[in-house]
Design a protein around this nucleic acid. Sequence first.
DNA 1: GCTTGACTTAGAGCGCGCTCTAAGTCTTAG
DNA 2: CTAAGACTTAGAGCGCGCTCTAAGTCAAGC
Lengths: 127, 127
Amino acid sequence: MSITQDSLSISEVAEATGLTAHTLRYYERAGLMLHAVDRASSQHRRYSGADVAWVVFLTRLRSTSMPIARMREYVQLVRLGDDTTEARRDLLLEHRITVAAQLETMTQSLAHIDYKIANYTMKVDGS
Amino acid sequence: MSITQDSLSISEVAEATGLTAHTLRYYERAGLMLHAVDRASSQHRRYSGADVAWVVFLTRLRSTSMPIARMREYVQLVRLGDDTTEARRDLLLEHRITVAAQLETMTQSLAHIDYKIANYTMKVDGS
DNA sequence: GCTTGACTTAGAGCGCGCTCTAAGTCTTAG
DNA sequence: CTAAGACTTAGAGCGCGCTCTAAGTCAAGC
């Protein structure tokens, strides 16, 4: 598709980010892109490097379970420019707290699961 | 409700586990309990200590994102008794792998988010 | 000119995990 | 005897995050 060009097709971005083309369109519709993605003359989307970097950032928020609606709030702040720096930081800080709690819970649960695994292994291996 | 009695009502278990009574009934219907919960003469559920401990274990599996269907598989193995020890261990080991991956991804995403927070803080605090 | 295939859109559909509703039962207090 | 309140059931409904469908457009290769 692209030879040596600094914009990518939707399927290339899907490939690069691990999202599907469907999901990329959905994210754009959901207002998660900073601006509408550029189009080729064919009306096909052409993602810039910055677009891709942004999508990757979105996947980081998602992988930490930030809801789409909250991500949209963040995007809106970014769109508003430098005046919202503090608000953006606060939003991320708040999110950070919930992520840390999640990690804590998961880590503890994993420890309990590991304990169970160890017991089972004793039963299996031991006489 | 219970004075000094070793069985708990559904709302007490809800309180103790952080689940709702609705969810507790749902879990039972979904086949996640080792056996139907005992009933008082009023037909109200009476959870034993072991029942509560099991529910807590279920919440550990859920907090690590194990799907309900997979949890049900595990429960079925437990019901089948000692012969399934190895199968149960394998199921937990497999789950362990996905949880570890999740933790890894989340931790990395959190690091990126922290980096952003640090940048914002510099902008806010610095001149 | 025709076919193939990657894309486009609007909008419907889906799977999951709850979450709630409605109607009924039982126990206890007044 | 009545009313309140905690429970019961079967089954419907919901919110989220995709995921898919159908019909159409466009560009490239034969």
